[in-house]
Amino acid sequence: MKWEIPLVIVFVTGVILALSDFVPHQSIQDVREFFMSWLQIIGVLAVGLGLVSLTQVNLVKVRRKTPGWIYSVITLFGLVIMLVTGFVWDYREPSNPFQFLFQYALLPIYATMFSLLAFYIASAAFRAFKARNALATTILVTAVIVMLGQVPVGAKLAPLKSWIMEVPNMAGFRAILLGIGLGGVAMALKIVFGIERAYMGRD
């Protein structure tokens, strides 16, 4: 029973939601609406689940003084301070302590993490783009043309860059995307029919 009930739920909701795409009649659209609302409700409830997990794991680390426990203290502190300021002040007001933390702590930290990409792209390019063989050399040359064509310095290469992006690159992407699209439908069917059950912790 432990396995059958979830499989039945998956089958029934899967079929109804798939049907709702082909049946415009209001009756089935209402059912779709109902499921969609539940999805949102469950998503919101799950935030609580995450909160419990986060607090528990980090509290244990602090209590046991495991290596790096000080980061757990910072995490918990951040959690509490954002929660409290978020509750006390209206997040829609342009300036208050919550907005201050958001604009002047969170935003710069996020932007910093994203900008790490520039550095990592440099080191990855340095390491990986080697003219080992004919194929690797093709990738290397193409990468250089696209990089130059993308910026004003290499404006002369822009038409060639556009061709590379819109023809060979696109052909590759389309092939991958079509495969992913069909694979996605196959996966959805496997789930609805109960063939794929690994997500329930079962082979």
């Binding site: 689940l49 995450g50 912790g201």
Partner: peptide
């Protein structure tokens, strides 16, 4: 994602 976490726990436990 918290739901992903819950499912991962179940998968690993099994």
């Amino acid at each position: 994602d918290p739901i992903v976490m819950a499912v991962a726990q179940e998968t690993v436990r099994q």
